[in-house]
Design a protein around this nucleic acid. Structure first.
Length: 998
RNA sequence: GCCUUGGUGGCGGAAUUGGUAGACGCGCUGGAUUCAAAAUCCAGUUCUUUCGGGAGUGUGGGUUCGAUUCCCACCCAAGGUACCA
């Protein structure tokens, strides 16, 4: 009986589906374990061999935990909203729902083929209205909440309204927009409904705001920072510009500190934690306010000219004490991480976009400043970033007053200061910051030294640890730390600043001008957003004629004819029902509305035209799996109370600052609202590495029709052209005829061979359709089976490392499976297709037991450490040893099967049946390792001299230290005598090893 | 630049409370079986050598009887991030 993997795999996949072997229950006597692999976006290209790597690892762990007696939840679903389906729809008119469905079916087929233990009864799809109903619901929850900085948690907005009614907002410390006016309870009461709503919107965790966004004209949409790579869109590589738009935003910044703190509580990879820490970008320092010196009249202008003339020298100003007495109309707030260096300030720099630039610039400098601001605005963000070396800036003519010395400080503008970080203004300390130093050098601004014993003639000194402040009044002689806290205390005392923590993290823009995403459950009354009640959700996507933005520049949903909300009947109605006289802030052009009865307008309002971004649907899917069919709530309290959180999450590191940050944010919010029981959703996370492709190249000579084999290209001017890897055999030999059929452009090309073969060049690249290096799992399953593929993917190398795919090596694991199969053949009874145990009676030999328990120990350790690659080796050794031992004992073979079954479940099930079991192996208890079978009576000790192996001695294990020493000494004496030298001294390191010291 | 991870045969990679470096697999070499091939099985395979040995885990130092493993300095590669004040 041969190992017929195709028959076996089909049989067991059908068995698992029919018996719902892997369906999880939401309660159990067993402890729970939740294994989750990141759900895929079902792209049209299907799976390649790189995709299943993480799924296989997760599946092995899930199956292992099942053997270990856990109630395992191991679900799978699809992140099925996304741009590719929409792009395809724009090109072909095919509805994205249809292409998505087709792709999902293809994915399912491919996944099923690999024998995963997914509980498909819990499948979710983010584009399913029954799923995105709850995405919309979470949006409403965020809209209905504000963040209380005092208690560092989110609270219902009703509580805030109550506070406003009682005492206004003076005692409220909330994460909110900066331009919130202060008011008391009577003022609040006097506001109109609309004014109240406008104020509340500034507090809500999701809010509408005019934000400067990354607008991609080619895609007609807004992109998140992480969707832009090197200044162009990640998808398509189109240019991106800055543009102001009214957008929904998520107040993730409220959670900045908690997102940072939470990282210490989870077992996630360090690089991933670091990249989130980096992304949040906490810096500790102080905000300092500088008064702008008023009187930018002639006197001030003259000073400015002097300043410009007396470059590099300290400028003495007369009469500025007079100016001090004048009250300053403007203040510049800066953020600095080095308040200790405040006496080193010799100028200030504002971002060109800073709002004060226009107000403080003196008439003399006006022309130059305006020209500079305009020139900067024209340059794209990309140009500005690419051009870091060029120093540019302009003096505004204005001065600020140093808060301590009261000296005037010239105010410059420069594009090295970013409007989007901090306050868009810096106090420049050229002696302590290289950029300030370079700027000062370039424009001849003075560089006062405020460090003790440091030479700053060549470059700035930024080493905090070695800093001793000098030349700084009350800070003299202090270290960085002491000076910082003292400077902050002084600033606070004189009312010119305070300690501050600044974050790089920005609020997340949540609107997308796309069709294929979740619609917002939002309609507008008098321009103010209103939420649709839960019982009327989901608000499903409307049909549209075309998927592009409208001619008036509205998002694709602007094309929908039925996209208005009837608040009386709680349903979507035709746009024609809209009252065109309503001032809704959105242009709605309709013909023929005059025919309509004005009553049709009553209570009908326009709906939001934007859709949610890709990360909306993926930010809570892991919790929805716990109770996916629930129509009353996102999940029941019982379900989430039982499963709580993900125990093991497996996925790619590319989601570090996107999905994984947003998901943590939503989880913390739901935790605050008492909807989720934990504030982190995944205890442990593993990033599987990427499987790269091995591209093949042919070499075409420039200006000729010749294509040279790899060995012949030296000294020739050739260009490498990708060849499809399926046309190349394991020895890098190209099937030239097949290549000509595949690329008809080359059908007349002359292929220059070496030794009668055309040898291709090889290079490791990312696996991609365009590089023709994609290896498809289907072909491999056909030829070697899913079990071979699963084993091989694990065998390739450590899970977390990226590694190149090379199909050639799969024969190794495949022949292991054949050997394993052979081991069980004595039990195979052809007539009954069942094993019979009667033929065996002998006990397992000590060798059998030793091999087995060695394997149990290693495999268990490996799985716990996610070192799946080494356990495949362990299996191979085990099978080789048992084969050599002619082991045919069912007790040994049974336990071995359970060890193998997480890795190669189909063959394990089949052989399990061969051994006479009628139930699935899935629930069989994991073998227990017993030390006694590994204990030996003697041990071989390496005896070394000066680190080099001299000889080995086999000694009884129970021998004491002195005895070993004596035995080795005796041996050494004999050796020394034989070699005619003096014997060396013997030292025994307790429990370890024997050494001989000269 | 900064942060992180890593650097071991022809290749993928084993081995860390410091203890025989190169497990296991691929590839390669030789052999068995076969009319032959595939498949299977056995043996060999870090380099070098005058067959005694010598060298060897990115480079240079250090600690130690003994270092792939620990310490210091440097080089290289991959990933992340970047005028972040």
């Amino acid at each position: 009986m041969n190992y017929n993997f195709q028959e076996i795999e089909a049989k067991w996949q059908a068995y698992w589906a029919k018996n719902q072997t892997f369906q999880a229950q939401n309660s159990s006597d067993k402890p729970k374990y939740y294994v989750l692999s990141m759900f895929p976006y079902p792209s049209g290209a299907g799976l390649h061999v790189g995709h299943p790597l993480g799924y296989i690892a997760g599946d092995i762990y899930a199956r292992y935990k099942r053997h270990k007696g856990f109630n395992v939840l191991h679900p799978m679903g699809y992140d099925s909203f996304g741009l590719p389906a929409e792009q395809y729809a724009i090109q072909t008119g095919q509805h994205p729902a249809i292409t998505t469905e087709t792709n999902i079916n293809r994915y399912r087929e491919q996944l099923d083929q690999l024998g995963f233990s997914f509980d498909w009864s819990r499948e979710v799809r983010t584009s399913d209205p029954e799923y995105y109903k709850w995405t919309q619901w979470i949006f409403i929850q965020l809209f209905s909440a504000w963040y209380d900085n005092k208690e560092t948690k989110a609270k219902p907005i009703d509580a805030l309204v109550h506070l406003f009614e009682k005492e206004g907002n003076s005692n409220v410390d909330a994460s909110c927009d900066e331009d919130v006016p202060s008011f008391d309870s009577s003022e609040w009461a006097s506001f109109s409904k609309k004014e109240q709503q406008e104020i509340l919107l500034k507090y809500r965790l999701t809010y509408l705001a005019d934000t400067e966004v990354n607008w991609c004209p080619a895609l007609g949409t807004v992109l998140a920072n992480d969707e832009i790579v090197n200044g162009v869109s990640e998808r398509g590589g189109h240019p991106v510009i800055r543009k102001k738009m009214t957008q929904w935003s998520m107040r993730i910044t409220a959670y900045a500190q908690r997102l940072l703190d939470g990282l210490d509580t989870v077992d996630w990879p360090q690089p991933l934690k670091d990249s989130q820490t980096n992304w949040i970008g906490r810096s500790e320092g102080a905000s300092v306010t500088f008064d702008v010196l008023s009187g930018s009249g002639t006197e001030r202008s003259r000073s400015a000219e002097e300043e410009m003339l007396n470059v590099g020298q300290e400028v003495q100003h007369d009469g500025h004490s007079e100016l001090d007495s004048e009250s300053s109309p403007f203040q510049i707030e800066v953020f600095t991480t080095r308040p200790d260096t405040i006496f080193g300030v010799s100028f200030m720099t504002l971002a060109p976009e800073h709002e004060l630039v226009a107000k403080i610039t003196t008439p003399e400098q006006q022309a130059e400043v305006t020209a500079y601001v305009e020139a900067t605005a024209k340059r794209s963000e990309r140009d500005r970033m690419a051009d870091v070396k060029t120093i540019s800036g302009v003096f505004t003519g204005a001065y600020a007053e140093h808060p301590f010395t009261k000296e005037p400080v010239p105010i410059w503008i420069g594009d090295y200061v970013l409007a989007s970080y901090g306050t868009g203004a810096v106090m420049a300390v050229p002696c302590g910051d290289q950029r300030d130093f370079d700027f000062a050098k370039h424009y001849g601004i003075s560089i006062p030294n405020i460090f003790e014993g440091v030479d700053i003639s060549e470059e700035a000194f930024a080493d905090k640890a070695k800093t001793i402040i000098g030349n700084s009044d009350f800070l003299n002689g202090l270290s960085y730390k002491e000076a910082t806290s003292k400077a902050i205390a002084e600033l606070e005392r004189i009312g010119h600043g305070k300690g501050k923590i600044n974050y790089r993290l920005r609020d997340a823009v949540f609107s997308r001008q796309r069709y294929w995403g979740e619609p917002f459950p939002v309609y507008y009354v008098d321009g103010m957003p209103q939420m649709i009640e839960l019982e009327h959700l989901p608000l499903t996507l409307p049909e549209v004629e075309k998927y592009l933005p409208t001619e008036t520049g509205e998002p694709p949903l602007g094309n929908a004819t039925d996209w208005a909300w009837d608040t009386k009947n709680h349903k979507v109605v035709s746009n024609k029902m809209l009252n065109p006289r309503l001032n809704v802030g959105q242009e709605v052009q309709h013909d023929g509305h005059s025919e309509l009865d004005s009553e049709s307008y009553e209570g009908v309002y326009p709906l939001e035209l934007n859709t949610m971004p890709g990360w909306a649907g993926s930010s809570q899917y892991f919790n929805r799996y716990m109770d996916p069919a629930n129509t009353q709530a996102i999940y029941s309290e019982d379900a989430i109370g039982y499963w709580k959180d993900v125990d093991l999450y497996i996925g790619g590191s590319e989601h570090a600052t996107g999905h994984l940050l947003y998901s943590r944010f939503w989880q913390k919010f739901l935790f605050d609202m008492g909807i989720a029981p934990t504030s982190e959703f995944a205890k442990k996370l593993i990033n599987q590495g990427m499987i790269t492709g091995t591209s093949a190249f042919v070499y075409k000579e420039m200006d000729s029709n010749k294509v040279f084999s790899k060995g012949l290209i030296a000294g020739k001017n050739v260009i490498p052209i990708h060849a499809d890897v399926s046309l190349v055999n394991a020895s890098d030999e190209l099937d030239v005829d097949a290549f000509k059929v595949w690329q008809p452009d080359y059908k007349d090309a002359e292929f220059i061979l070496e030794d009668g073969k055309y040898i291709v060049g090889r290079e490791v690249e990312k696996m991609s359709k365009s590089k023709y290096n994609v290896v498809n799992p289907d072909a491999i399953c056909d030829e070697y089976g899913a079990d071979s593929l699963r084993l091989y993917e694990m065998f390739l190398g450590p899970l977390e490392q990226s590694k190149p795919w090379n199909t050639a090596g799969i024969t190794g694991v495949h022949s292991f499976l054949k050997k394993l199969w052979k081991l069980y053949m004595p039990f195979f009874n052809e007539s009954s297709r069942q094993g019979s145990l009667s033929e065996v009676e002998a006990n397992p030999t000590p060798e059998n037991l030793k091999t087995l328990h060695k394997t149990i120990k290693k495999v268990e350790e490996d799985i716990e450490n996610f070192s799946f690659n080494t356990s495949v080796s362990t299996f191979m050794i085990c099978v080789n040893e048992l084969t050599a031992q002619k082991c045919a004992h069912p007790a040994i073979l049974k336990e071995l099967l359970i060890l193998v079954s997480p890795y190669a479940p189909h063959i394990a099930e089949e052989l399990w049946q061969v051994l006479g079991h009628t139930e699935s192996i899935a629930e069989a208890p994991f073998p227990k390792f017993e030390e006694q079978y590994l204990v030996e009576s003697t041990k071989e000790y390496p005896i070394s001299f000066n680190g080099k192996l001299r000889f080995k001695l086999e000694l009884p294990l129970d021998m004491g230290k002195d005895e070993i020493e004596a035995t080795v000494m005796a041996h050494e004496k004999t050796q020394a005598q034989l070699q005619g030298r003096q014997p060396k001294k013997v030292i025994v390191v307790p429990g370890k090893i024997v050494n001989i010291v000269g």
